[in-house]
């Protein structure tokens, strides 16, 4: 099976009274690097778990190439969800060795690239005989990244891969990711909090907020729709009339508004006495999802 479309429709998932995912629809097309961005507790890991059959859901469907993902060995072999290794396990600390996880990966993941895994082990200076609880957070992230990359799965999903990595390792990770993507063209889906750094890598972004994907599309196109307009408060208010204002910030008589509109709608504002600046992905995310968390 070559890379196919991974699709979820009408997903609902609750933990007790907490309704985490609400009629969520998402489509992951082959040959792209996706960034899944959401606030803490937005349900990113839950969504990724459901997409790969590792978590359950109350209603909705998840398919890959038209086939259901749940308990489908053929499909699951094409997906790899490499999540952060826990320092503890039920009943105590995680005393399994790195080699243990690599052995399991080599047994279960049909596209596992042993040579590549070995190269990455050396590159990350990871000792396969070391126990998980004895690894630093950064080293545990390296194991996650290693498994994800060496899985060579047509759809590879990484949950917070850069968390805990120092800035040098993060740069190296993005480089490895792009090299791998250039070589294989496989699909990557990454969840992250370090938005600006990863923004250059993402082709498409998915914003998860209040249990739904509120934005999905090419990162560049999305960012191009958002601007900040700043200047005298009355002037900003005047030019923003009729525009979709997402947030405002007032400091004395100076006001800044985050707006979403096309270039054409912005042209009257360009003629006015205000400053117009583009927004970066992180600012766009904050403008869209920076409200109080839903309870």
């Amino acid at each position: 099976m070559n890379a196919a479309v991974l699709q979820a429709a009408g997903l609902n998932k609750s933990y007790g009274k907490n309704h985490v995912l609400r009629d969520l629809d998402v489509t992951v097309e082959p040959g792209k690097i996706y960034g899944l961005i959401g606030r803490n507790g937005a349900g990113k890991t839950t969504l990724l778990g459901i997409l790969t059959g590792q978590n359950t859901h109350e209603s909705g469907s998840v398919t890959y190439g038209g086939q259901p993902v749940w308990e489908n060995q053929t499909v699951l072999g094409e997906l790899c969800f490499s999540r952060e290794l826990s320092e503890t396990l039920v009943g105590g600390r995680n005393s399994l060795k790195v080699a243990h996880y690599l052995n399991a990966a080599s047994l279960f993941l049909p596209h596992w690239d042993r040579d590549y895994a070995q190269r990455l082990l050396e590159e990350f200076s990871l000792d396969p005989g070391k126990r998980i609880y004895a690894l630093s957070k950064g080293q545990r992230s390296m194991v996650t990244v290693l498994i994800g990359l060496a899985s060579r799965a047509p759809v590879t999903i990484l949950d917070e891969p850069a968390a805990g990595l120092d800035v040098v390792m993060r740069e190296r990770f993005y480089q490895l990711l792009l090299e791998d993507f250039g070589e294989t063209g496989r699909t990557f889906l990454l969840s992250t909090h370090i938005i600006e750094e990863a923004a250059a890598v993402f082709e498409d972004v998915l914003f998860l907020d209040r249990g739904k994907i509120i934005e999905q599309g090419p990162a560049e196109d999305l960012v191009a729709q958002f601007h900040t307009i700043s200047g005298r408060a009355d002037e900003v208010d005047r030019v923003c009339r009729g525009l979709e204002v997402l947030s405002t910030e007032t400091l004395g008589r100076h006001k800044t508004a985050a707006v979403r509109c096309g270039e054409e709608a912005l042209s009257p504002a360009r003629a006015a006495d205000v400053d117009i600046a583009p927004m970066n992905l992180q600012k766009v995310f904050v403008a869209l999802c920076g409200h109080e968390p839903a309870r």
Binding site: T52, G53, Q54, E71, N72, Q73, L76, G77, L79, C80, F81, R83, L89, V90, G91, L96, H100, Y101, A104, A105, L107, F108, L109
Partner: peptide, 20 residues
């Protein structure tokens, strides 16, 4: 004692089905 916690988690996270 650990088969259905630790080892099940590892197997499922690597793409094994519950039935298998």
């Amino acid at each position: 004692f650990g088969v259905h916690s630790t080892f099940l988690d590892i197997a499922l996270s690597m793409g094994c089905t519950r039935r298998t």
